[in-house]
Design a protein around this nucleic acid. Structure first.
Ligand SMILES: [Mn+2]
Ligand SMILES: [Mn+2]
Ligand SMILES: [Zn+2]
Ligand SMILES: [Zn+2]
Lengths: 140, 140
DNA sequence: CTGGTATTGAAAATCATTTTCAATTAGTAT
DNA sequence: ATACTAATTGAAAATGATTTTCAATACCAG
């Protein structure tokens, strides 16, 4: 998924393409760690100096709505966003540097069915997130 | 786990027992759904009218530090707290009424090892949360 | 091009949380 | 019981994050 594709998505959904949006999109799309609105602001302003923080918020909102980014929940806070994975995926976060990796292939069907039976709940969704140290942080 | 036990825990950790704390503890301990600070404030003020919202924040902070409560992350927000389960447990949340149930018995070892091998990460923790409809909300 | 409207950034407003502070009070030592 | 003292309190102010308002600007369909 490239920044151009995100811009196309925005355009196809009736949103205009502006320098502000391009700067935000390019910044968020290429990041391999979750960024807060202020972090996006600081980075994106290198591409487009006049950018306002309000526009960052507004653009992140639209990208989330189009499922191009997703909010990342962490013990330290839940304001950061990362480029969303393809299809059903989960996050693996480095507790040291914040690096984000995606994974899939989790099979929770058996567990889900067992819990549903015991609890009486009808289970429709799950959140799974792994934490640890990335290869780089592990060696250093 | 009863409210009395929580108060004992607080006392044993050097915290004084006050009417304000008793009201907060009794409110949070008996709730089966996650409560935000303001919700705790509103409910606890029925027991202790003079309670201040600041004290709710301060008490929740201490209860979290003693692992008696835990923060609940949800799509709508991450400011709510629920009584913490015993040992390693996970949450099952009703999307309709907010009812919280705990479960354990999840076995993610195989998955964790597979992801660790593929990704190069050293995995130390996991978050797992199930969402659905509780028995009550399912029938109604 | 041009016009209509979406988008912009600045400033103000709102909302959640934290800090400050003087008064009160729990718990211990007399 | 009483006195002492540090922890605790709630109100108010401060902070920080996010949202709203608004007049100026700029995208883009025609
Ligand atoms: Mn999954
Ligand atoms: Mn587990
Ligand atoms: Zn790392
Ligand atoms: Zn329910």
């Amino acid at each position: 998924m490239t920044a151009e594709l995100w811009l196309t998505q925005l355009h196809e959904n009736g949103y205009r393409l502006t320098d502000a949006r391009r700067a935000v999109v390019e910044t968020v799309e290429k990041s391999t760690r979750a960024l807060t609105p202020v972090e996006v602001y600081d980075l994106a302003r290198r591409k487009y100096r006049a950018l306002g923080l309000v526009t960052v918020y507004r653009t992140l909102e639209k990208l989330e709505e189009l499922h191009l980014i997703q909010r990342v929940h962490q013990p330290q806070g839940c304001q950061a966003f990362i480029s969303a994975g393809q299809g059903h995926q989960h996050l693996l976060l480095c507790k040291n540097c914040g690096q984000v990796a995606f994974f899939d292939g989790d099979d929770l069907d058996a567990l889900t069915r067992a819990i549903a039976r015991k609890s009486g709940y009808q289970i429709t969704e799950h959140w799974l997130q792994l934490f640890g140290l990335c290869a780089d942080c592990r060696t250093q």
